[in-house]
Amino acid sequence: MGSEGFYQEFEVFSKRTDTSSLQYQFSLLAPNRELALVMAQENFMRREPVADIWVVKRSDVRKMTPEEKQSLMRLDNKEYRTTKGYGYLKKKWRHYEQEMLDEKEILSWGGMKKSE
């Protein structure tokens, strides 16, 4: 008489704060997801703040095989997809006496109010 059915594998993910991204923690064994959830916090996050926990049955995760991981490789020729391919604009804008709107500048707009 084995306990295989009691020992289901669950993957545990958590968020450290409300605003942080979900992070993989570790795996645990539990008979079902309710108990997996109850085990997760104290097994992996008993010394750190935690704002949310997800448990996922491992068999529900579609993982990549080593073979499939080869599909992740790509050539380093995709500058057109990134700002790297448009760096020359900086010089161009300078010609028109304008600053280039680069990443740093654009992402800083989030906190800006009209009145400011």
């Binding site: 009691f6 020992y7 645990l28 064994l29 539990a30 085990m39 916090q41 104290e42 097994n43 008993r46």
Partner: peptide, 11 residues
Amino acid sequence: PHIEEDVAFSS
């Protein structure tokens, strides 16, 4: 009953 529970119970 199992190791994971041991850790949780102790907390």
